[in-house]
Simulated scan of single mutants.
Amino acid sequence: MKKPDIDRPSTWKPYKSGMCNGCHGGCCTMPVEIKISDLIRLGVATEDEAQGSIKKLAKRLMKEGIIVSYRSGTEFFMLSQKANRDCLFLDTKTRLCTVYEKRPDTCREFPSIGPRPGFCPGSSHV
């Protein structure tokens, strides 16, 4: 059986309970769109900033390397990734999320939402 390819959702496996046990953060190498509420929960933005100029906030977060873009039409911020595609908050050695308790809603709801709802891009252990 072919190994799932994160860039080809058609190769992903149906999600089953327990699949995340022993996973090495495969989904944590996909781009993550987040909302202002996620930025506040992560502690990288304040409620006051959320009430002010979002474009100014986005500019600051881009300069700090936390996000790569902001789309005002959808109000989504694109979270930065490391050079190897890992999420900014994924520990390179342990492959665990360093902000798990504060993680964005997109991460909390995956794989219910995403490119192929109900499917996981997990590796061959799946």
Rank of each mutant, 00 (worst) to 15 (best):
T29E: 13
D91P: 03
P4T: 10
I40Q: 11
K102H: 08
F76M: 11
G122P: 05
E75H: 02
G26A: 14
I40M: 12
K93P: 08
E49M: 00
S17Y: 05
W12Q: 01
K13D: 13
G52S: 06
P4A: 01
E49P: 00
F89T: 00
R116T: 06
Q51K: 13
K13L: 12
G52Y: 02
S80V: 10
C23P: 14
R41I: 07
F89Q: 07
S124L: 14
C87M: 06
L96R: 15
S17E: 15
L57H: 00
T46F: 00
R8G: 01
F89H: 03
T46Q: 01
K59E: 13
S53N: 05
Y100E: 01
K93R: 12
S124T: 05
N84M: 02
T94D: 13
K102T: 00
E109I: 04
H125M: 11
N21D: 13
R71L: 06
D38N: 01
A50C: 03
L39D: 01
K16S: 14
Y15G: 02
F76E: 15
D5S: 12
G114D: 10
A58S: 12
E47H: 08
N84K: 00
C20A: 04
E47M: 09
S69N: 11
K59M: 07
D86R: 06
